[in-house]
Amino acid sequence: MSANAALRCSNFDERRDKAMALFAAKGFGQVSMRELAAHVGLTAGSLYHHFPSKQDLLYDLIEELYEELQATLDQGRKALARGKPALPAVIAAHWQLHAERGLQFRLAERDLCCLSDEQQARLALVRLRYQAGLLKLVAPQTRLSGPALTATGQALGALLNQLPGWLQGRGLAEDEGLRLMQSLLLGGIERTLKDAVI
């Protein structure tokens, strides 16, 4: 990559981060494209060149988060390959991702409803794939099916994706917060899944 291309890429990432911070601070619906462009240091026309609408920008931010969530499952697979349980590794990966991308979690939780029906449907499929992969990883022999399986995946995903933000906002030391999250989740999840396996 040339120096100019690297600079353009870093400028774009910096502008995306600024846009995300503005959305998180004010709320997606309260930010106009003109305000967004001024906040990230672009003209409105230049911003439209990158994103046809602010919905497209929000969609990209949330989709990127969902792809990162899918990648957290790799940590569980690596733990299994080393002969260790997957769930503690998955919990730690979610904790770290939340520390790195807290604003994106906030946007995904609060502003998903601002996307078009088509965008929401596409993200719902990505989220379902993540939840199914999560269950397959931590409870490969579950006897749950149908609505119970779907509800379990949704609940497990919600706990993993919301608990870090709540705990990280309580003034706990990093390692203390992670240990508390593991303590809260491991017992309850493992017991629930143990009762639902063959």
Rank of each mutant, 00 (worst) to 15 (best):
Q168D: 06
G177T: 01
Q131S: 13
A3C: 06
W95M: 03
K26R: 15
P88A: 01
R170G: 10
L103F: 10
V40R: 07
Q30H: 12
G45R: 08
A38D: 15
A92K: 12
K194G: 13
A148H: 11
R34V: 15
Q141A: 12
H39R: 11
D74C: 01
N4S: 14
L156Y: 01
D117R: 14
T192I: 08
I198K: 12
D195H: 09
G146P: 07
R34W: 05
A86F: 01
L186F: 01
V126R: 14
A173R: 14
A3P: 07
G41V: 04
F105R: 04
R82Y: 06
Q75S: 15
A44P: 03
G187V: 08
A124N: 05
L185E: 08
R122A: 14
L128M: 13
A19P: 04
V126F: 08
L180C: 09
D74I: 09
L65T: 00
K18C: 09
L125G: 13
L178E: 04
Y130P: 04
L135D: 01
A79D: 04
T72M: 10
C9N: 15
L123V: 08
F51P: 08
D117E: 14
A196M: 07
L137E: 05
A92E: 12
W95T: 02
N161P: 00
C114P: 00
T152S: 09
D117M: 13
S53A: 11
L178K: 10
A148Q: 12
C114A: 14
E63Q: 13
E190T: 15
E64M: 13
A86Q: 04
M33N: 11
V138H: 04
M181E: 06
S46R: 12
N161W: 12
S53I: 08
R16N: 08
V126S: 09
T150M: 12
A132Q: 15
V126H: 08
S10K: 10
G133F: 05
P52L: 12
L144E: 03
R129G: 15
A124L: 06
A6C: 03
L80G: 08
G83S: 04
L193R: 00
L144Y: 00
T72K: 09
E190A: 05
S183W: 15
G171N: 02
Y66P: 01
L167G: 06
L125I: 11
L193H: 04
I198T: 11
A151I: 08
G188C: 06
T72C: 15
L58C: 04
L80D: 10
A108L: 01
M33Y: 05
A196N: 08
D111N: 07
L73H: 02
V90P: 11
I91P: 11
Q104F: 07
A19G: 10
S116P: 00
R34K: 12
M33H: 09
L103P: 00
G146A: 09
A6K: 10
